[in-house]
Structure formats: C-alpha cells, structure tokens
Design a protein around this nucleic acid. Structure first.
Lengths: 369, 369
DNA sequence: TTGTAAGCGTTATCAG
DNA sequence: CTGATAACGCTTACAA
C-alpha cells in the first residue's frame, strides 16, 4: 500500500503538499494539486486513517451500543443512523452488550479511541447510570425514555402520548372496561405507556381497577398466557391495550384458540407498529413509532458534539408517535363489518390506514404533567 | 486521557514495560505487572487503538457492506456477525451502499485502513465483479449466491435445495399443477430458487409450462398483483411456490379479497421464514433460512485471514435451509382441517412446527448438477 | 505557495 | 526481565 511519502516522491513534491491536497487546506496551486491527485490515483493511494486520527484525534466514526438481541425495532434504528452517518461521511461501529451496567462499561471501553461519539440504546433504568457518567466526558446521545431533568442528551419516544391516544380511541369507540397488558417492570418505555393508559382512563372518568393491568414482559408468550387471566375477569373487559405489538400478537393467537372474536368480542390495540402488524388477521391497530427516524435524529443531534469532541449538551427530545387504526379495534358503527380488504404496502409511502400523529404537545394528548 | 508515558512515569517503569503488560508479551515479573496494572487502572488508562494499529497494521475491526435498504433478513445477518465478532474481540463496522459497482468501490475505499477484513452482501450478479478483484488483495468473504468456480471465499444459501424441497412437498400433497412466483431477474438467489422449482417438477415427471412462472420482484405488491394472472390460468394451478415470503403475503392478501381459500383452493409455500410467516392466517409454510447463522459463519470463515492480513482462500460453503410446514400448504388427508392452533414462539427454541433440513447434499434433495 | 521537521501514542528491536 | 530508541503514516506549525 502506497504511503504519502511514495506519492510525494513520485510527484516530486513534499509530503506536506500531498497532505494539503487531500485535506483541501492551505491553498495549493491548482496545477500541483491536479498533478498530485493524478499520481495518487495512479498509485491507488488513500490516507491511512489510523495515522490520521492519531494526530487529529478524530476517527470519523461513531459507535452504536445496542441491547443484546436486537430485533426489528433496533435494526431500523441502525438503518436510520447509517443513513444519516453516510450523509455526514461518518462510519458506524455497532456493538451490542447485555443491559447490565458492567458489560456496558466494558463495551464502551472497547470502543474508546475508535469513535468520536456514541449512541446508546438501553431501555432499562439501571443500565443507564454508568453511561450518564461517561456522557459528562464524551459525546453521547441516549435513545432512552425517562431522561427528563437529567444532564445528558436524550431522545425518547412519545410513549405516554401514544398510549394516551390509543386508549382514548378505545374510549371513543364506546369501551368502558379496558385492560392493559403491561411491559416488564424496570423498562421505562413500558412504564410510560402504562402512565398514558392510566391517564386516559382517568380523563375519561373511568375508575382505575388494578385487576385490569395484566403483567407482561414484551414477549409474545406473555400475551398468549395473559389471555387466560383476561377471560377470568368479571365483568370481562371489552378491549385490551397491549404495551407492545408482540404481546398483542400472542394475545390474539390465544383468543383465536379460545374462539373469542377480535374485535367483536375483544378489541385490541398494540404499540410499535412492527411490520407484521398490518398483515395480521385482523390487522392490528397500533401506535406507530418511526424507529428509522429515531436513529437519524440521534445521529444528527450527536454530530456537532462529536466533531467538536466535547460532551453533548443536556437536551431532551420527543419522537412523536401516531395511532394507526386498523381492524383489530373494531369500529363504533358496524361491529360485524370489521373485515378490511387487504392492500399491498408500498415501500416509500405508508400503509393504507388512518393515522393521527401525537407530538409532544399534540392537541389530542393530555396536558403535560 | 492518560497515555502510556504517563503510566510509565507514574509506575516508575519504562513505556516498553507498560506495553508488555498490556500485550502479555515477553515475560514481565508478576510483581511489576501487577503494579503497572494497578497504576493504569487508577489513571483509567487504555491503549490508544489508532496508535496501536498504526504500527501493528491491525485494526481489530471488520467491515460489513450491505445493500441499501436492509430489512429483517440483513439485520439478522448483522446480528450473527456481531455475535461471532464479540467472541473474537473484534469490532464491526457496518456500511451500506447501493448495489452498483461504483458505489461499492467507494464504500470499500472509505473502509480501507479501518478494517482487517470485509463481509459483503450483494445479491446482484453484476455488483460483485468489483468486489472480486478487491478480494484478491484483501480478506473478503462474500455472502453471495452463484459463486461457484470463482476464486474467492463465499457462503451462500441452499436456494436450489430449499426450493426443490418445497415443491417436492407440494407434489407429495398431490398437487400436479404448481405455479411459481419468481424473483427479480438478475438476482441470483431468485434464479437458484427457480432452478430448484423446475428440477422438482421435472423429477416428478411434470412437464414444464412457462405460463406457470409468474414474474415477481420480491415485493409484496408483486404477489398481490400476480393473483389476477394466477386466477386466469386454465386449468387453474392448485398450488403456488413463491420465491420469497413477502410476495406470498401479498398473494394471500389478494386471494382473500377474491374469496379464494388458502389452502383449500390454492396451497401456498414461501421462502425465507421471516418473522411474520408464523403469524399469518393461515400460517405460512416456507423454507427457513437462518440468517443469523449465515452471519456467524461468514465471520468465522473470515477471521483467520483477517488476522493474517492475507486474502481469503477460495472457498464455497452452502448454508442449509429447512422446510417449515405450516397451514398455508394444507395437508393431504383433511383438506378442511387446515386450521392450526396458535402457539407462542419462544426466543431460544424454534417455533412449533415440522421441519426438515436440506443440506448441500441432503438425502431429500436432488442429485448435484 | 511549498518544504522541513516535530510530534501523535504505540509496538518492536535491540542492548543491557 | 527491563529500558532506550527507532519506526508506523500522517498533520501541522514554522520557515523559506
């Protein structure tokens, strides 16, 4: 591999000149510049990034730290990050780690010196404390819920608002006894979604019944097994808000086995709008989260600090969600007419459905608090 | 950030000794080693990877080059790579590029000097030529079909064998008129799957009818629109093998709209076993591809060459596929009893279904040719 | 506008 | 077993 010396010698100039040509710094005569470029191209020369970053203290790479098993949601986030990074001419280093604080620290250490900034996705409350300390010394953006009032930069999903809108929609359809399938305790997204559920019930003047909150863990099997508990409730709920789509899918499956009709007997709403949602039968009404955009925003937020090599300023941003109404929640008018014609999805546009966006201060959401 | 000099001074040893402690090279007295480690820990020192790789010519990172829009399949591949890389204490640099040879070269150039090896996923035939040349000078593993006889290292999916098994299964169920929804022309996976289809028909003594091959492009909408053409065929096919799951989904949706029953009127088999497949109603019979394992294998294959910094030896490996029989293809005995009870999936184990593996030389597959 | 030379933080090669 | 010291390939004052 040719080095800057080889090119300099071959082109009959000094290495400084070659360096200047490649960095568009200090004016170089267009003639020499062209000559140098030609020689470099012929020799297939490209600056060694290690040597470069040794002296500039910049790697032109950002790290992405994810939870261990990343599914559909996280891969979309990465895609968004990658998209934005490409525009910035930055590389993306992905790394996964178990959520425990210990392994997160190890992962960060392994990344040290290789990246100019870091995006961390850690949905658990305890795992983020280690990161926060690190964030005071290094450019970090958290993709985390519940970061308000903290002195770090974080982008989170409008979980509360999304859940509120979903439950409000069910109330609007006439439901009065609405159960919720909650997420794992300690998961902040899950907590916020429960908060939105409770608030929507309260605002509708419905009293809070703890028995209606069924414990879940975001896994399909949790939804599957919750069905039995659900059917035991008296009076039986007429609607269920599930903290995520996977559990809603498990629930629908179990209900089908039990010959309970969705949405006629029980209306169901999920959260996330994973790709599967629109293909279920009935198609799942759910709260859409644009994971790709989440990733893009995170990178854009991080970039200036990564470039400046200084910790990100405290900041909190909320990614809006939107309610996607499909068949699983039924309609107020015609209970029996829940069958919707299937439409193929188009890559560029959204799916065929009614959608309502819920921003941080959306007019449809609850008052801030 | 403390450097090796700071640690050496503080510990009262030379920088060479500190270096040795961190590299477990040349014996160092356990006493001094411990002392140095203690001082380093206290100063929060960690070797600068840029400086290190400048002299060792090793980055301890491998690059992954993917197609532009990566979906479910590719994210699973990345996960497999990440999993294996973590075991090897290697970092993963992801980078996407359009399939065109031009942008692939640009992407490779941007990665140069940052990685010890490269994994490339490019399903199109023409895009890989640029890479092949690069692979003669640098450790590269291709995740590509149709690489036989080429002088590079490649792992591919048993497309032919999987398709053969799928169609053979339909034949076994009694189907004699079996259509196929093909993938985009130029896509090698798609070509191989069509090859398996044709061979299975031939081996069953069924004559090849070109009208039965419906053109598709791997998108759901292609499946959706193919339904109309399918219904026009006389006599109407009783089964359809779709080159991927997405198209099968579109097809099922269109058939439902047309009140054609699956599997009673038309049996359907897909390819890939994407996560959605098991939740469809009826659940989709499909050919399972373990994308995660594909990624793991690629990394394992690449590692020794990346470590040795020399081009990978020519090699071809086939990732076996397996037929996953679910509701959409029906059963020979009871046509009406196609309704299967829903079972929640467990993360660690496979879904509840019958499965048959088809390796490169599986006894269920066709003779090599 | 161009060249010279001093590092950047390591590892590797020698002596000791 | 340990310590000087020369690379590694580049950027960047400072000189010319």
């Amino acid at each position: 591999m040719a080095t800057i010396r080889d090119v300099a010698r071959e082109a009959g100039v000094s290495i400084a000149t070659v360096s200047r040509v490649f960095n568009q710094t200090a004016l170089v005569t267009e003639a020499t510049a062209q000559h140098v470029r030609a020689v470099a191209a012929r020799m297939d020369y490209w600056p060694n990034s290690a040597a470069r970053s040794l002296i500039t203290h910049r790697t032109h790479a950002i790290g992405v730290l994810l939870p261990d098993l990343y599914g559909e949601f996280f891969s979309e986030v990465i895609r968004g990050i990658d998209l934005a990074a490409r525009r910035e001419k930055y590389q993306v280093l992905v790394s996964s780690s178990r959520a425990s604080a210990e392994t997160i620290v190890a992962a960060v250490r392994a990344l040290r010196g290789r990246i100019d900034g870091l995006i961390v996705m850690a949905p658990d409350a305890d795992a983020t404390t280690a990161i926060r300390e690190f964030a005071t010394r290094f450019p970090v953006v958290l993709l985390n819920p519940g970061s308000m009032g903290e002195d770090c930069s974080a982008i989170s999903i409008a979980n509360f608002e999304g859940a509120y809108a979903a439950v409000k929609h069910l109330v609007g359809l006439g439901h009065r006894r609405i159960a919720m399938l909650t997420g794992p305790s300690g998961n902040l997204d899950a907590e916020e979604r429960r908060g939105g559920y409770r608030r929507a019930l309260a605002d509708a003047g419905l009293e809070h019944d703890p028995a209606l909150e069924l414990a879940g863990d975001f896994d399909e099997s949790a939804g599957f097994h919750a069905a039995a508990d659900l059917m035991k409730l008296r009076p039986r709920p007429t609607a269920v808000f599930s903290a995520n789509d996977y559990m809603a899918i498990g629930l629908i499956g179990a209900l089908r086995n039990a010959d309970v009709r969705v949405p006629q007997d029980v209306a169901i709403v999920g959260f996330d709008d994973i790709a599967i949602a629109q293909y279920l039968n009935p198609a799942l009404t759910t709260v859409r989260v644009d994971a790709c955009e989440l990733g893009e925003r995170a990178l854009q937020r991080l970039m200036p600090f990564a470039r400046a090599r200084r910790p990100a300023e405290p900041h909190r941003e909320l990614l809006p969600t939107s309610l996607v109404v499909r068949g699983s929640c039924g309609t107020p008018q015609a209970e029996g007419a829940a069958r919707h014609a299937f439409r193929p999805r188009h890559r560029t546009s959204g799916a065929a459905h009614h959608t309502t966006e819920h921003a941080a201060n959306g007019h449809d959401g609850p008052a801030a608090g």
